[in-house]
Amino acid sequence: MSVLNVDYMMGLVPILLRYLPLTLAMAVAGMVLALVLACGLAVIRVLRIPGLNGATLLFISFFRGTPLLVQLFLFYYGLPQLLAFLTQIGGITATIMGLTLHFSAYMAESIRAAIVGVDRSQTEAALSIGMTNGQLMRRIVLPQATRVAVPTLMNYFIDMIKATSLAFTLGVTELMGATQKEASGSFLYFEAFITVAIIYWLIVEGLAWFQRRLETRLNEAYRR
């Protein structure tokens, strides 16, 4: 067994970091879009809007019930055969689309649970002073639900950052794709993949630190 080639690893880091912006961009774009979609889905579920509620349930069921990789292949390879205008779809777009739909299904359920978990008396108090349903959602219920939902949503974000690595199966050269290329050139597979693992790990740890600070701030109003 040969000794770990540390010099190779150190040299690899700056090369791989060039692809970090793309990885993060896909994750951030996916997260923002997924949050918007998930909020919409959650509100539909909470208010049980007729018609839309059933469609939402089906959507959540499908995107939670099938592997992300299958969904990515479906969007990238499958859909263009069905819909001609999608032939232009790139690997990056398909990845963001897949991440958005897949994670919004999970996030919708945790946002819904957080909304439902806000004490009924908060809604009644808001109604009693003459607020409309929209006003009380925006100003009272959603801010309180956010505090409950943030830890779970941050977990999904962490998961999503790691899930961007699947983009390499669609031919996108992001962190994982770049590592794969480097490794197959040098044959130092262990060094290459442990390096990229550590990079992912550090990103996630950084986020976890941010998450703790965010939670402290969100809990400010609730400290006795």
């Binding site: 008396s121 108090a125 009693s128 801010p143």
Partner: peptide
């Protein structure tokens, strides 16, 4: 309305 359990906006 004044509520038995106060129902102040917690946030």
């Amino acid at each position: 309305f004044v509520f038995q359990n106060y129902a102040l906006f917690a946030n």
